[in-house]
Design a protein around this nucleic acid. Structure first.
Length: 488
RNA sequence: GGCCCCAUCGUCCAGAGGUUAGGACACCGGUCUUUCAAGCCGGAGACGGGGAUUCGAGUUCCCCUGGGGCUACCA
């Protein structure tokens, strides 16, 4: 029975694949994987004015990056293709012809300008701005006349005047709309392309989709689609409407809220697994208090019952935290491999100047401090470039105090020529300097850190020095010592 | 305006009539420590309001209020 489950992701290539799409796609994917169903990808490119090849590529790219592999769709094929609506126009046309023949749809000769004008009028009068159905009552001869004039026509669905449509929503329970609230929506535009209301219903039926999951913002389209299914005599899928993801201002997440596309998050150094985990929890919960769930655990725990009904505010802070958790848990090799591109983006080809082992060690020392991969270049900069400046506060606190230059000189002397430049030897040497100068270890360490990295914070000093190596450390100590003397 | 949906800490979620209302992020304090992170310990912080049902309501029902969505020849 589970084999009958078929869900589909129908992105429209009129924009980037954003967080909301990602979550909807994820839920469907999880549902399909959990129940042994099929996950179908279908590109809804009927709005040819706004659809682009670039957006299609980005959608496929985003889905793959997130690990949401599809069983049928672009580039993988399937028995229900083609999976681009722009290649299925004949099917919509046929469906509309049937509706026309049955008198369940009719041509509308009103122009967009006329419609717009009338909408404004109605709005001004305080009336709901619905289509007034004036072409619905056209006589045969009136239609003939308009046809003869060669007027462009759209095809509208003739919604019953009375009664109601309803369905048992998979996440919200029974929902009902009065037919009187629905206007005669357009099925086919005057350019012959179908609208979403038509194409989606025809395709979902043709592709034997069993469950339609979509955002709550599409809820008002559902009664119209149900009419289409019924008028065409098509088997109907179950519908479920997901809560929306909101921006900080509690309105539907959109571009103005900042980063919203999946590729932006990827480029900002977020890990796909973290984004998936985070977004899964926006409107769904496994039913217990678990927050960190692997892909397998998500599949195992996923159920439609766990989907909430209220909208969720996207909390970028929490995503960042979660990304940090995933970053810290990454196996070293994996972590290094994923970090390198971010490093090279700012430092250029690293392999020409540093060997892989050095880069890896530097990266390892910052793993627990990074929340995103994009923070790594800044965090590791001192491993790849000598400090050009010293932190202002640090300089005031450590370089301007009496004896700072002497401390640096002593450290340089103590570590120069160490039999082995390892963490332990360095630590012993530096603590020895503190003893000899009758200082606590802290000041010596801080002064040295500033000299070697230009910073007051970072990984453990001895570890970082060991990675940098004796030559770099000595050079930097000498330079800092001169700088310190110049301050007096 | 009309229609539809929603309502537990600032935010995301638990809570399926009887709980000191739980967890996570963020915040605050402490701890560890050479710094920063990370970690650990602790703190503060919520059932929007009113009715009804019930021995008993965050949990059920109704109203109000509040929030969101839709209102295209976009999806």
């Amino acid at each position: 029975m589970s084999s009958h489950i078929r869900v589909r992701m129908p992105p429209s290539p009129t924009g980037r694949f954003h967080i909301g799409n990602a979550r909807t796609a994820l839920y469907k994917w999880l549902f399909a994987r959990r129940r042994g169903g099929a996950f179908v990808l279908r590109i809804e490119d009927t709005d040819r004015a706004r659809s682009t090849q670039d957006n299609i590529a980005t959608i496929l790219d985003s889905m793959r990056w997130l690990g949401l592999d599809w069983d049928e769709g672009p580039e993988v094929g399937g028995d229900c293709g083609p999976y681009f609506q722009s290649q299925r126009l004949d099917r919509y046309r046929r469906a509309v012809d049937r509706l026309l023949d049955d008198g369940k749809a009719y041509p509308c000769y009103c122009t967009p300008q006329e419609l717009e004008h009338r909408r404004k009028e109605m709005h001004a009068k305080g009336l709901p701005p619905r289509y007034d159905r004036r072409c619905r009552g056209l006589t045969h001869s009136e239609r003939e006349q308009r046809e003869a004039e060669g007027r462009p026509k759209a095809i509208r669905f003739a919604v019953p005047e009375d009664g109601a449509v309803g369905w048992d929503d998979l996440v919200r329970g029974p929902i009902e709309f009065q037919n009187s609230e629905l206007d005669d929506f357009v099925l086919l535009r005057s350019d012959g392309t179908p609208t979403y209301l038509l194409a989606c219903a025809v395709d979902d039926s043709a592709m034997a989709i069993s469950h339609v999951l979509r955002g709550e913002d599409l809820i008002s389209g559902t009664p119209r689609q149900i009419h289409v299914y019924n008028a065409l005599g098509l088997p109907m899928p179950r519908f479920g409407h997901l809560p929306l993801i909101l921006g900080p201002d509690r309105s539907k997440l959109a571009k103005r809220h900042g980063a919203v596309s999946v590729t932006e998050y990827r480029d900002q150094g977020y890990l796909a697994e973290a984004l998936v985990n985070f977004v899964a929890l926006l409107g769904w919960s496994p039913g217990d208090d678990r927050e960190l769930l692997s892909r397998e655990e998500l599949i195992e725990a996923f159920s439609l019952e766990g989907i909430g009904r209220s909208n969720a505010v996207f909390d970028a802070e929490k995503l960042a935290w979660m990304n940090g958790v995933y970053l810290r848990n990454l196996p070293p090799d994996d972590y290094v491999a994923r970090s390198r591109p971010f490093l090279e983006a700012t430092f250029g080809r690293l392999s020409e100047q540093f060997d892989d082992d050095y880069v890896a060690k530097a990266l390892m020392l910052e793993q627990e401090r990074a929340r995103t991969l994009a923070e790594l270049p800044q965090l590791t900069e001192f491993f790849f470039r000598d400090p050009e400046r010293y932190d202002d506060k640090g300089e005031r606190k450590w370089f301007r105090r009496d004896g700072a230059a002497e401390v640096l000189a002593a450290v340089r002397a103590a570590i120069g020529g160490l039999p082995s430049f390892d963490v332990e030897s360095i630590e012993t040497a530096i603590r020895g300097v503190a003893d000899r100068l009758d200082l606590k270890a802290g000041p010596v360490i801080h002064t040295t850190r500033l000299a070697v990295t230009g910073r007051t914070k970072g990984p453990g000093l001895f570890e970082l020095m060991a990675v940098l190596g004796e030559d770099r450390v000595l050079t930097r100590l000498t330079r800092a010592e001169e700088h310190t003397r110049s301050l007096r």
